[in-house]
């Protein structure tokens, strides 16, 4: 039975939690607000919170200076492509681990996760050389493959934990009903695991969207996604707060909007399926 909590205690909890929540969210809020200020107001002393002249000019200038839409398209293609490719490779693997476990299953899973611990920088140059050799440098397909490989262990891991929650009797029933392996996965397992798969896709899309080592080091002008777009504002001459804020808002807005519409899957996904 839920404990009856006094009104006062609930009020204190609420106040405290909201204060902390807003504090944590504040940098994002401040960035968004600043993006609508003029450069002068952005660095006004004392800082102006809301009472400024709202303007969209920063967005116009940013779009003009660097082609936002091109970076955005690259980001969508790279993050989306790598996630979908990863799912395609990971679903069969996770099926195997969840429903035909062997003594080695756990070892393989842990080994996969351990590949994520390999410091990327340790293998940067070899990858760089391979990319030059294969003509993949500064191409979207190259990044799609690399980001797929980096996130693959996490995708397999998450799908594995979601699949394990599905009773194997149902898949056996499908087998008895004459379903081939392909039908079993396509018509029975996948529809049942949709919430888990959605969470996995969402989280890995975000991880790929935000990935900032390979995307910065393996792209130049053509395939650069939003991470590179924003990194170009780190040079001192680009330090105009309002424009920086506008660019930042543009870089994170798609993810924040995506997150807003899929809170449930996101919250589920953010635990990497590891905790129930």
């Amino acid at each position: 039975m839920a404990r009856a909590v006094s009104f006062n205690r609930k009020t204190v909890n609420t106040a405290l939690a909201w204060a902390i929540g807003l504090l944590i969210f504040f940098p994002i809020l401040w960035t968004i607000l600043t993006s609508f200020k003029t450069e002068g107001q952005a660095i006004a002393d004392p800082p102006i919170f809301l009472m400024f002249d709202w303007t969209l000019e920063n967005y116009a200038i940013v779009q003009e200076r660097s082609d936002y839409l091109k970076f955005l398209t690259n980001s969508v293609i790279i993050a989306g492509g790598s996630t979908l490719l990863g799912i395609l490779v990971a679903v069969p693997a996770a099926w195997s681990m969840a429903f035909v476990p062997s003594k080695r299953t756990k070892d393989i899973l842990l080994w996969m996760l351990s590949t994520k611990m390999l410091p990327a920088v340790g293998v940067l140059y070899p990858i760089y050389l391979i990319f030059i050799e294969l003509g993949l440098l500064d191409t979207k397909i190259g990044l799609v493959v690399v980001l797929m490989l980096i996130n693959l262990p996490i995708i397999v891991w998450m799908l594995y934990t979601y699949f394990k929650e599905i009773p194997s009797e149902i898949l056996e029933a499908a087998r008895m009903d004459g379903a081939s392996l392909r039908s079993e996965i396509l018509y029975v397992l996948t529809p049942m695991a949709i919430p888990g798969i959605a969470s996995t896709i969402l989280l890995n899309f975000i991880l790929a969207w935000n990935e900032a080592f390979w995307t910065l080091n393996l792209t130049a002008a053509q395939a650069a996604p939003l991470t590179a777009f924003i990194a170009s504002y780190s040079s001192p001459e680009g330090l105009f707060y309002a424009k920086l804020s506008a660019a930042s808002t543009m870089a994170i807005a798609p993810i924040l909007v995506l997150g807003w519409f899929s809170q449930k899957q996101l919250v589920r996904g953010l635990t990497f399926g590891a905790v129930k």
Binding site: P167, E169, I170, A173, A174, M176, D177, P191, I194
Partner: peptide, 20 residues
Amino acid sequence: LPPAQRGLAMVFQSYALYPH
């Protein structure tokens, strides 16, 4: 032979219905 080719049908303890 795999289960599908044995011409048998099975009713499981948990019924194993396809929930979707």
